[in-house]
């Protein structure tokens, strides 16, 4: 069971990110919709392919494959499903 090894330094950071994202998402329900909302008719720019952070999954996978084998770091190329909410 690898989780018992989670270091004292990284463990709280992991929890902070997960809990922070969750609380942020939950808190949105109490916000004023008008203040935060970009209306559907205002999404003409956002719907374009050049505004998609992970527009081409195959290309992203190929790029990540090259760099992840040549750097000590990972991440930063996004998560599938993220986007502008155009779908």
């Amino acid at each position: 069971m690898p989780y018992r090894y989670i270091s004292k330094r990284l463990g709280p950071l992991l929890a902070l990110v997960v809990v922070g994202l969750g609380l942020f998402a939950l808190s949105l329900g109490g916000c004023s919709t008008a203040r935060w909302t970009v209306k559907p008719h205002q999404r003409e720019l956002l719907a374009d392919r050049i505004m998609q952070p992970d527009g081409n999954a195959q290309e992203t996978a190929a790029d990540d494959h090259v760099l992840s084998n040549r750097e000590g770091a990972i991440g930063g190329s996004g998560t599938s499903g993220g986007g502008c909410g155009c779908n």
């Binding site: 994202l21 998402a25 949105l28 329900g29 916000c31 919709t33 935060w36 909302t37 970009v38 209306k39 559907p40 998560t79 599938s80 499903g81 993220g82 986007g83 502008c84 909410g85 155009c86 779908n87």
Partner: peptide, 16 residues
């Protein structure tokens, strides 16, 4: 993986 649009599609929470 899962993805949810929140607040009139203005936020997307994705987990993988």
């Amino acid at each position: 993986s899962t993805s949810s649009d929140l607040l009139d599609h203005n936020f997307t929470l994705a987990l993988s």
